[in-house]
Design a binder for these strands. Structure first.
Length: 960
RNA sequence: GGGCGAUUAGCUCAGUUGGGAGAGCACCGCCCUUACAAGGCGGGGGUCACUGGUUCAAGCCCAGUAUCGCCCA
């Protein structure tokens, strides 16, 4: 073996061989265990968040596979409507100076597929490098044929069940992409703006209570006055309540609009009068509905002012309530240009009262970055009310559990206020809506045009045109768990693997995806008793991985990290190129360059996949975001190296030696040391902790237990304790220790494998032939570690006496090392040691472990003093009742020893003081449980006995 | 404004029925000891954000305050 672990040499070929052997596919034996990957967006590449979640998923899958389950990790990608279309549009603009309209719909979609084929591979490559044990043969894409069939089927059935309808409603309109987007794709941001106070003349000579012939309305969007169809005042507002039912003559358009009483008008804010524009504001839209105000649309798809308005009734039908005429001077002006023009006009007319600075919240499209415009359009909706009930109940009854629990509140809160879901998008890339229109606007829904004609008995001469719009990407994603398993055409796998066992995802996606998956799945998938099936039983919600400053990682900030750069390393200049090349906003490049140089002055070193995965599981405590810490990754790379070298030591001492392997039913005689018996027990405790931690999704605790055992027990103590045996022990003792070495290492590798697949496989292949582990039922020892059984807790291997004895041995050794360290005695200097107050148990332990003590504490002699023997002047430590003395002559300076003793005494005294205080408190002694009191008493006795011994030494030494 | 979360060593974080404050990294000292210097041995370091309450006992439970973050309106 190489002296240093080199991950790059092993990882890729191992993965390839696993994949070729078909180890990632379900075995067909055992209970089903499945996880559906949250499909990454096809436009992207994986970032640290993906690596984090996928490491957790793979750890679970590998663990369950080794537990004998029939595991399926289902993967795939999401077609990401807007994002993908945007990328390809930008590409053809840059490369060919063309728009999608130059291509036409079909040719453009071909172009997108072409792009998908070349770009979609990036993610697959990354996933493989992460070691993910995914069944690639079942990889799915939300736009592939099977998924499309499922989408169509769901749409048609929902329509038939009256759960889908079409309507003219106010939507979040993205004026850049010309499509509706959902509430969830809107980011509300704080912004500095203005509040304009406008004078609205009262009609018919009416006056306010104060005798004025106008009202003042306050608005942040003066350009929408052209669409006003009312003014609201609060019905309790004495200033204006007598005006309810009267009218305003709206400036600029001379439109007579009613004054209505509505609680929406807040008496304490602004003037207390609110202009109502039902076609351009969500709140106003609600007010309009309550008072049956018509809707006047004044904006086109670019959010520019129309030449003539569109007037609608509340049910979406055209209305003749108002003229469609608009002032020609504003026609075609963009909304923000129009705003200035309209304010100027009000000013000119003497109707602008004042302008104040105002903090407001503006909605931005999360993809386009432009301000979203509420716009009246025809869209398709899913009626959510009937779907919510079962979806909420599933969480209430525990059929679905969130980990951590607090996310259930978030889910419930969102479900409670759920609006109907707008599912149509005015894009080309996506599932086209299976609805056809005749020339009179009649709508027919069906799987195909032929089906529609048959179903509605439409004669061949009726011209039908399919809806141009496509479905929201999340509509197809909502079907993910069951459509990937073959629904609707094939339900065999559904029986085996659905419901999936756990969904691992970020909290930011609970609404987008998790809630919608639950609703859709429960509506369409029923178990054998006709009960709705949930898509997954557990939802493990991960926090975000933030950069080292605690900032969210994002492309625009340039702080995104490619997990492969952590694995393979990357030079600074390459990293800079990656972060600043091909940027949408080149002006940010300088800032990103600066930040990157500060964060990674020398680029990133290679760490390997196992170290990355171990880091990710180590930080996976539940319910909080993670601040990425490069030092942790460095530390766990060192850990890999430690494991590597420990294994190297084991192999150097066991390969081509008799390790007690059973051959032809014969096994050499073995004698086990205390250390052998101890390490087996320690290992079992680790096995137990790892199981418990995995079951509780506490990957951090599992990692910690593995780290602690491997480094602090196995390497620091056990390997050192094997040296005296291997160098000096009898044949049977050597065989016993070699046997224990290979047994523990072999099992430890299996225990670690779910988290660190590569290094464990590599070492295991070398170790397993030395052990008595039977690799599979067929006796095939060359099979992979990944298909072996996971270690199970075996209490019979926990020998409490061995554990106690070895703890004593450790304390003895540490006591001497402490004196050495504090007194600057060279570690190579062999020391004589004298012992006082040796009780029977100490004597037994001494007799049994002399070899260990001498070797690890570097002693040249151990002498037990009789009670009446005078000890020479010595440095002293206390182990239980035992005093350990190291003669000072020629080694130790008097002052130094006095200082050391003082320090030790002070420390003990503080503890003793506190314990004495407790025990002298009557209330404590009266009320605390006996066990606690006894523990305190024992603690005090120990401290006092140690104190007495040290104090005695103080006296002796200072007397000199 | 409503809800949720966080606040523990210099940094990043554990601390699960309330009962001796922990880890990794960083720091200090010694050591290239034949598995590992990506290492070994030893050591220092915390008013557990603050205030009050419950309790014999509070990092942990309760109430409130502050600061930071997230979600919703």
């Amino acid at each position: 073996m190489e002296k240093t672990f080199n991950p790059s040499e092993i990882e890729q070929s191992l993965y390839q061989s696993w994949e070729e052997q078909g180890y990632f596919s379900p075995t067909g034996e055992g209970d089903g265990y499945s996880i559906a990957i949250p499909p990454p967006n096809v436009t992207g590449s994986l970032h640290m968040g993906h690596a984090f979640q996928q490491t957790i998923m793979d750890t679970l899958i590998r663990y369950q596979r080794m537990q004998g389950k029939n595991t399926l990790w289902q993967t795939g990608m999401d077609h990401a409507g807007i994002a993908t279309q945007m990328v390809v549009e930008r590409k053809i603009a840059a490369e060919e100076d063309k728009t999608r309209h130059d291509y036409g719909r079909e040719a453009f979609i071909d172009k997108v597929w072409e792009w998908k084929d070349e770009s979609g591979g990036t993610i697959g490559k990354q996933m493989r490098r992460l070691g993910n044990s995914i069944d690639w043969s079942r990889e799915r894409f939300t736009m592939d044929d099977g998924m499309s069939e499922a989408v169509q089927e769901v749409f048609v059935r929902l329509f038939e069940d009256d759960l889908i309808y079409r309507g003219k409603r106010l939507v979040n309109w993205d004026p850049k992409f010309h499509t509706a987007i959902s509430d969830l794709e809107v980011e509300n941001k704080d912004k500095k703006g203005h509040m304009w106070y406008l004078r609205y003349p009262l009609a018919d000579g009416v006056k306010t209570a104060e005798g004025k012939d106008y009202l003042v309305v306050a608005t942040t969007r003066p350009e929408t006055v052209l669409g006003d169809t009312g003014v609201a005042v609060n019905p309790k507002d004495d200033r204006y309540k007598n005006l309810i039912g009267k009218h305003i003559l709206l400036p600029l358009v001379n439109r007579l609009i009613p004054i209505v009483g509505d609680d929406h008008a807040d008496m304490t804010k602004g003037s207390g009068c609110v202009k109502i524009t039902p076609a351009h504001d969500f709140n106003d839209n609600e007010v309009g509905k309550r008072h049956d105000l018509p809707l006047i649309n004044i904006l086109d798809k670019n959010a520019a002012i129309l030449a003539s308005a569109e007037v609608y009734k509340n049910n979406g039908e055209p209305s003749t309530a108002y003229s469609t005429e608009l002032p020609s001077e504003f026609a075609g002006l963009d909304r923000f240009v129009a705003r200035k023009a309209i304010v100027a006009k009000f000013d000119e007319l003497g109707l602008l009262v004042e302008v104040k600075d105002h903090d407001l919240v503006a909605p931005y499209g999360d993809r386009s970055g432009v301000i979203i415009e509420p716009l009246l359009t025809d869209q398709w909706y899913v009626r959510t009310a009937p779907l919510v009930g079962p979806a909420v109940a599933a969480v209430e009854t525990g059929q679905i559990e969130f980990v951590p629990k607090q996310y259930e509140n978030m889910y419930n809160a969102w479900m409670r206020d759920l609006q109907d879901w707008c599912i149509s998008r005015q894009l080309w890339w996506g599932h086209r809506i299976p609805a056809w229109y005749d020339e009179n606007g009649g709508v027919y829904v069906g799987r195909t045009e032929a089906e529609v004609r048959a179903k509605y008995t439409l004669s061949a001469d009726i011209v039908l045109k399919q809806d141009d719009d496509v479905l929201d990407t999340w509509f197809s994603s909502a079907l993910w768990t069951f459509s990937t398993l073959g629904w609707p055409s094939n339900v065999e796998d559904l029986k085996k693997f659905h419901s999936t066992d756990v969904l691992v995802t970020g909290f930011d996606i609970i609404f987008f995806w998790v809630a919608r998956m639950i609703m859709m799945t429960m509506h369409f998938i029923k178990d054998e008793n006709g009960q709705p099936q949930v898509p997954f039983k557990k939802v493990y919600v991960t926090g975000l991985i933030r950069d080292e400053n605690g900032d969210k990682m994002s492309k625009s900030k340039g702080n995104v990290v490619d997990p492969l750069d952590m694995i393979d390393g990357i030079a600074l200049d390459e990293l800079l190129e990656k972060r600043t090349g091909n940027m949408m906003q080149p002006k940010l490049a300088a800032k990103i360059t600066k930040l990157t140089k500060k964060e990674y002055p020398a680029g990133i070193e290679a760490h390997g996949t196992d170290a990355l995965r171990f880091t990710l599981t180590s930080v996976a405590s539940t319910g909080r975001d993670i601040t990425w810490d490069m030092k942790r990754l460095d530390g766990y790379r060192n850990f890999c190296n430690k494991l590597w070298n420990a294994s190297r030591y084991v192999l150097m001492n066991t390969e081509e030696q008799d390790c007690g392997k059973i051959v032809n039913g014969q096994q050499g005689e073995m004698e086990f040391s205390l250390a052998d018996r101890w390490i087996l027990g320690q290992f079992q405790q680790t096995v137990k902790t790892v199981h418990e931690s995995f079951e509780a999704f506490r990957f951090d605790l599992a990692s910690q237990a593995l780290y602690e055992f491997t480094w602090n027990q196995f390497c620091d103590w056990y390997l050192e304790l094997t040296k005296p045996v291997l160098f000096k022990g009898s044949e049977a003792q050597q065989r016993g220790t070699r046997h224990t070495l290979v047994t523990v290492l072999e099992s430890l590798l299996r225990l670690m494998h779910p988290i660190m697949p590569f290094i464990t496989e590599t070492i295991w292949q070398r170790v397993v032939p030395l052990s008595n582990f039977v690799a599979d039922d067929k006796g095939n020892e060359s099979a992979s570690i990944m298909v072996q059984r996971f270690p199970q807790f075996d209490e019979s291997q926990c020998d409490q006496t061995a554990i106690d004895d070895l703890e004593w041995v450790k304390q003895f050794i540490v006591a001497i090392r402490n004196i050495r360290g504090e007194m600057d005695i060279s570690p190579s200097k062999e020391l004589p040691v004298l012992l006082k107050n040796v009780n029977a148990n100490d004597q037994r332990r001494l007799d049994e472990n002399q070899q260990f003590l001498s070797a690890l504490a570097k002693l040249d002699s151990i002498t037990v003093l009789a009670d009446n023997d005078d000890a020479p002047l010595s440095a002293t430590a206390v182990v239980g009742d035992l005093s350990v003395l190291i003669p000072m002559a020629g080694l130790i300076d008097k002052e130094a020893e006095l200082a050391r003793l003082t320090k030790a005494i002070d420390k003990l005294e503080i503890d003793a003081q506190r314990t004495r205080g407790k025990l002298s408190n009557e209330k404590f002694v009266g009320k605390a449980p006996e066990a606690v009191i006894n523990k305190e008493k024992a603690k005090l006795a120990d401290a006092e006995s140690a104190l007495a011994k040290l104090a005695e030494q103080m006296v002796q030494i200072s007397a000199l």
